[in-house]
Every structure is written in structure tokens, then in C-alpha cells.
Design a protein around this nucleic acid. Sequence first.
DNA 1: CGGTTTATTGAAATGCGTCAACGATTGTGG
DNA 2: CCACAATCGTTGACGCATTTCAATAAACCG
Lengths: 220, 220
Amino acid sequence: MPNSKSPGSPPRRRERGNAVLSKPDQTPVDRMSSERLLSRRELIYRKGQAAENIYKVEIGCIKTFAHRRNGRCLLVGMYFPGDYFGLEIRKMHHVSAEAVTSSKILVIGRKALVSRAATEAAVSKEMLDITGRELHRAMQHSLLLRLSANERVGQFLFDMKKRNRGKEVELVMSRQDIADYLNLTAESVARALTQLNNQSAISFRSHRRVVVHIRRPMAA
Amino acid sequence: MPNSKSPGSPPRRRERGNAVLSKPDQTPVDRMSSERLLSRRELIYRKGQAAENIYKVEIGCIKTFAHRRNGRCLLVGMYFPGDYFGLEIRKMHHVSAEAVTSSKILVIGRKALVSRAATEAAVSKEMLDITGRELHRAMQHSLLLRLSANERVGQFLFDMKKRNRGKEVELVMSRQDIADYLNLTAESVARALTQLNNQSAISFRSHRRVVVHIRRPMAA
DNA sequence: CGGTTTATTGAAATGCGTCAACGATTGTGG
DNA sequence: CCACAATCGTTGACGCATTTCAATAAACCG
């Protein structure tokens, strides 16, 4: 039913399928990288450690997070193929990062990057670009946090859908992860999902496979 | 009424006094700028307009904001002397900006900035720096939005204090502005303030002059 | 000084969190 | 292949934090 792709051609472009599996193109910065494979729940760096690298997701899903004193987990970012993460202004990581699913990432030395950016305009331009996208992401997230519980979950699903082709979304993370990202409880997320389901805004293939029917965000 | 400002001396360094009046130093980017004076409530740009400049606060306070469909105001950023604002990734402004108090700002042409950044490493470095600080600000803001009402107001006052010397904070914006920034109602802000006052965490000189007694944030 | 905006306070409504129970899914070893 | 345990997800009842609505008080401005 959905968009057909030239099937036999060499896979230069982003592949068909869900976001978790697709593999982005290479850029000047990427060529300074080495690969690393991660299993589910594997820690990449810890809050407080020296920030020696930045990273790019090739396959899978990475989350960045911290804990409040009360023990509650704050999920700060969720990164999918093509996204860079681990960017820091200061010398330390201010959050931890771990793999949500088994993943492949690119590791890029920070020092090398900074020194190359000093001489090559293309690299410094790309750095600015990456930082700008991260800024945009952070602002979208703070917008998200101002919505009602139902709106937050709806917007979240909508945003996930935008990353894929087609209406179907594979939620690779747990309800608890979604809750920690949206600053809700897992219960509130579950309730919002059932409500959206009852309103036929979404439907479930399985607990983690959702079809998003609505075509635009319900709030702004 | 209070702080005397050295009136005759050349203003090279940041002046003593509250944040609203202090005047930051000049950088390579600043030298590409022209000045503009603003009266209270004056609009600088509107959401949806082409982003032709970036700006730096010299004197006063600028807010960036948008409105939700329900009419509620979202205050996205509050900028004080030394802060850059109006930075955009896309070609359009995605928020509006207006002066909270009468202010003086620097206006920097975006095109000129981008073209100079392509050749001068110092400029592109500063751009990255500015974007990085804005990123940091956005992340702090989304952290703020996850706290309880009392914690949000406490943290806000604390952050304001950090920008000044001394414990006394001049709140140049209305309670409603604070509420819109913290995603609370003006009533909740007022209640939180009276509570903090009752706990002697703060005390009032006037409605908009607060002495912050606590030495560190109450939440994280 | 009067009118207007801004700030505070109280009472009632509500949305989300908490606690507890249940149901579904996944993974493991027999 | 099934049984079991462990994890994950859903649902319900109740409580609390924040909003809403309304009234009053204080500050600001011509």
C-alpha cells in the first residue's frame, strides 16, 4: 500500500523499514569515526565522566538520562539513526547514555574534531549544524513538557511517526522510558494510550507496535 | 533609588548593580552589530517572520514567546545583558520576541555573520559557542519544567540570583511572565512565593525586589 | 486622586500521581 | 513444547498538587 522504492539499486539512501533499522548517510564528521556495537542496556558514558567523544547512531536507539535526588529518572533525550548525541559544552557529561536496544554507533574523538573544525570550514559548519539540531530537539522537548498528559503522549507518537515512513510506529522503548521522557508515570502513559485508542486516534498491532491515524499534532 | 553607577568612567567592564542594567563586553561578532533602543513591550520580531538578524542584549530584558491554540502564552526564553537571542536553525522565527523593560540591544545581520563565519574561524567558533549556550539554556529550562511548582519558583529565583552579585534580585517581569516561563499560573507563582517567604527562604523588599537567602537549589 | 493594572488569597474543581491488583508478554530451563 | 518465573503493561480507587474562578488588596500612572 505505501510508497514503493526502487528495489535492486545499491543502498546509498536511507533504507525502507522502521527507524530502528535504517542507516543514515556519511558526512565529513562521520569519516573521523570508528564503529561500536552495543547490546541492550549497555552504558555508553556516565554522568560526570569526561566528554571525550561525540557519537552518532547508526542502528538502534540510545537514551540519555539522569536521576533526581528523589530517585526518579529523567530521560533527557532519545536518539535514532542519523542523530548525534553526547555533545557537551562543558568538559563533563551532564547526563548518562545507554542503549535502549542493541545498537551500532559511530564514535568521534572530540579533540580531533575540535582541532579539525579550527581549520576546515566544512567541519565547523557541520558542528554548528549538529549543535543547532540538538538545540531544536531540546526546545521541542521543553514544549512537549508543557502539554497535558494526553497531549504529551499524542505528540510523542506523532513525532515518532514523522521519523518513519508510513503510519506504523515501532516503540522500541518501554512505557516507563516514555513516561520518564514525558515526565509522567508509566500508568499515565498507559491510560493516555488506551484513551487515544478508544478515540481511534491510534490502534495497536501489539503493545509496542502502534498505528497512528491522526495526521497532525493535537496541540500546539 | 539604590546602586550608584560610575557615571563618568568608560564602561569597559561589566558594571556593578542588578543584571538589568549591566553592560557586557564586546566580541568579534558584536563588532558587526548596530544598536537599537527599545521601549517596554516593544516587539522585536514576530513568529513566522524571516530570521534576518540575531541579537544581543546590552541593557534590559527580552522575552521570547509563542501562544498555544488555547490562547495560553508560552514564554520560551528570558534574556539578560550578555545573552544572544533570535538564533534560528530554519529561516523563520519560531517564536516572537519583545522587550520586557526598556532595553538596548545589538542587531547583527545573519547573512553577513554566516558569510564571515565561513572564512574566519574566530567567528564560526563564537557562533558555535553562542549556539551551545543557547542549547544549555534550553536544557536547563526543560529540567526546570519537570520540577514541582514550588521547586520551579525556587529554582527560578536561584537562577536569577546567580546572574547578579549579592542576594538581592530585581524581578523586572510580571508574575504572569514568570508563570508563563515556568508553565504555571500567576496564582501558583504567588502562592509559591508566599510559601518561600514564610519558610524564610526569601524575603521581599517590594513585590518585585526579592532577597534570596538560600545558597543552593532545593531540587535536582 | 481615581482608574487601571498587577498581586494575593480563598474555595472548589480537576488532572495526574500513588498504591495495589491483575493480565499479558517474554525468556528460560525442564 | 510446555511450565514457570520475571518483566512489562493495564486498570481501578484514592489522595494531593495545581488550576480555575472569584474576590480583594496593593501598586502604578496619568
